[in-house]
């Protein structure tokens, strides 16, 4: 789908420092429902940014806008210094955006290994003819990518479930496999939608460890949505707070924690 990355779709703009993603005055509405209104923030390279907010604040909508699921009515997105207009999710993937979902969206009939290998699809180039022949270039390519997939399997400590269909795995492990699939894409920007939802303490700790390790070892920029404030405050270097589709605060965890508007949004102001 490289054809759709044609110049009229993306115009280079002045890249501002080492900002990886810049969201500029995004407004998104579904009929009369205004999901996002004039939201702007930026994500610095190699940082972990958290988006928080009460239920229905528009956090997931924001992620959907970033990776091309929703097309905002107004506003612009700059990714890697490139301006982009409307874009399909797979084009966003080509540019280096990966994500996981709030409710796991794995390929249930496939094994853990195949799920992760599917994540490497964009990197595999051999055409139908070689694939049908299998022996030769297609197999070499397959084995090369298998090695990469195995590295991820080792990293996430899921060796024992390599061949298990993911539909049979417990929830915590499914979340981990989904993270692995996103990681297999070698993304520049990783969007995590509630990676710790529904997990117990140990699983949360494991997941936090993986998120930090991904950030450190692979140098991946991460944007995550999370409700566990302890996790958010510990993991992220920057926090963006949304409420009713508007951005109400943006800053370091400490700044956000002491921000009166944020406290009001969460606790009410009476």
């Amino acid at each position: 789908m490289n054809a759709s990355l044609a110049p009229d779709n993306i115009q280079p703009t002045s890249p501002s420092g080492n900002t990886l993603l810049e969201v500029d005055q995004i407004s998104l509405s579904f009929g009369g429902v205004k999901a996002l209104q004039d939201v702007s923030f930026s994500v610095e390279e190699k940082q972990i940014t958290a988006i928080i907010g009460p239920n229905g604040a528009g956090k997931t909508s924001m992620l959907n806008v970033i990776n091309g699921f929703y097309h905002p009515q107004q506003g612009q997105i700059h990714f890697k210094g490139l301006h982009r207009k409307q874009m399909r999710p797979h084009e966003a993937a080509v540019q280096g955006i990966a994500r996981t979902f709030q409710n796991v969206a794995l390929f249930k009939g496939m094994s853990t290994l195949n799920n992760i290998m599917a994540g490497r699809n964009l990197k595999m180039k051999k055409n139908l003819f070689w694939q049908a022949l299998y022996y030769g270039p297609a197999r070499d390519e397959e084995m090369r990518h298998r090695l990469e997939a195995e590295k991820i399997i080792d990293f996430l400590e899921i060796q024992s479930i390599r061949k298990t269909p993911v539909g049979r795995l417990p929830y915590g492990l499914q979340k981990r496999v989904e993270l692995g699939r996103a990681l297999a894409m070698e993304p520049d920007l990783l969007l995590l939608d509630e990676p710790m939802a529904g997990m117990n303490l140990e699983e949360k700790q494991d997941m936090c460890r993986f998120v930090l390790d991904i950030n450190e070892q692979y140098g991946t920029t991460i944007v995550l949505i999370e409700h566990d404030m302890g996790v958010v405050m510990d993991l992220s270097e920057r926090v963006v707070v949304l409420d009713y589709g508007r951005k109400i605060a943006d800053g370091t965890p400490d700044e956000v924690r002491s921000n009166q508007t944020v406290i009001d949004a969460y606790l009410g102001n009476n």
């Binding site: 990776n67 399909r88 979902f101 969206a105 390929f107 009939g109 195949n114 599917a118 699939r181």
Partner: peptide
């Protein structure tokens, strides 16, 4: 198989 199992997330991982 990924399109069969979940077309939304296949698009997310860059499958056309």
């Amino acid at each position: 198989q990924s399109v069969r199992d979940n077309d939304i997330s296949s698009e997310i991982i860059g499958i056309n």
